[in-house]
């Protein structure tokens, strides 16, 4: 289970998209469900996603199929597990003001997207590695290594917007759904699924994680997150070109000899310069007119106070 979850973490900044509508439709028609209410989850004050997470609970979620609402519950449940696992490897950066700041910026951007009611949750994890993680259901983590090279709130907004698109487009969740249905579709539809069956399926789901890593990620999902992320950030009032600034910095870091902070990032993702090129090639005059520093740009300097 752990391995399966960890594989999903490699959707960092840029997760592959394997959207297959037919599986989504099938999911909606199948019985089953989870215990988490998505409407309740949307309330920041709600603590239902703070309940203990265990493998049985997570596997229960992975093995259930249900209606559209239940599908969202499953998505949130999986995201909780993934996020909790990341936090087991990298603790939160110890500054409550900073954690609140990134939530304020991220939540505002999310409110300019199509999935406003997810339990959007943002955090900075303490590690020098440069990366960001998007987990299903609205959980987004940015490493302190990445935050440390940012100069403006516009740049932070660009990163958070990119991750929000990964969540909204279900880039990683769709991979889970697709592989689960491809391998176990008929079994999932069986009402006589026994305990041994579930155990076997669970083990296979764990192996899928390794396969995901070995197979590599779909670059189209990253380009889509870049493209839509620019729009989301601009909708929220930020500099539409801030992602170019971030990617320029990442490109420079990636080319710095002896710098290990982007090792995983560079091994699994399109190069920043390729992404800059793709993004630039798609810009319209309208978007370019929003490529100006926002009025909130300098606020990041007070984010820890």
């Amino acid at each position: 289970m752990k391995f399966f979850l960890t594989s999903l973490l490699f959707c960092i900044f840029f997760v592959p998209s394997v959207g297959h509508a037919q599986f989504g439709d099938l999911l909606k028609k199948l019985p089953g469900g989870l215990s988490v209410d998505s409407k309740e989850q949307s309330k920041p004050s709600d603590k239902s996603d703070s309940k203990p997470i265990n493998d049985q609970g997570m596997l229960g979620g992975l093995l259930n199929l249900g209606t559209s609402s239940q599908g969202e519950n499953e998505e949130i449940e999986i995201g909780r597990g993934i996020t909790s696992t990341i936090l087991g490897a990298a603790k939160l950066f110890s500054n409550n003001n900073l954690q609140r700041y990134v939530n304020l910026v991220g939540q505002n951007i999310a409110q300019h997207s199509e999935r406003k009611n997810l339990p959007w949750t943002f955090g900075i994890v303490d590690t020098p590695s440069i990366n960001a993680f998007a987990a299903p259901g609205g959980y987004i983590l940015v490493t302190s290594g990445l935050f440390a090279i940012l100069d403006t709130e516009d740049e932070l907004a660009a990163i958070l917007a990119h991750e929000i698109v990964h969540v909204n487009k279900k880039h990683h969740y769709n991979i889970i759904q697709k592989q689960k249905m491809v391998e176990f579709g008929s079994k999932f539809m069986s009402s006589s699924l026994g305990k041994d069956d579930k155990t076997g399926i669970s083990k296979r789901l764990i192996n899928m994680g390794g396969e995901l890593i070995a197979r590599g990620l779909d670059k189209d999902a990253e380009y889509e997150a870049d493209r839509d992320g620019v729009i989301l950030a601009a909708r929220a009032g930020y500099d539409a070109s801030a992602m170019l600034t971030v990617l320029s910095k990442l490109q420079a870091k990636a080319r710095t000899k002896g710098d290990e902070s982007m090792k995983l990032f560079t091994a699994t993702h399109p190069t920043p310069s390729d992404r800059i090129q793709a993004l630039s090639d798609q810009m319209t005059d309208e978007i370019e007119s929003y490529a100006i520093p926002s009025t909130a740009a300098e606020r990041i300097k007070k984010s820890t106070k």
Partner: peptide
């Protein structure tokens, strides 16, 4: 890594409306 429920709780505590 093992699931860190305390950290996860702290994470959700920073969530804003």
């Amino acid at each position: 890594a093992k699931n860190d429920e305390v950290q996860f709780k702290n994470l959700t505590n920073s969530r804003v409306r």
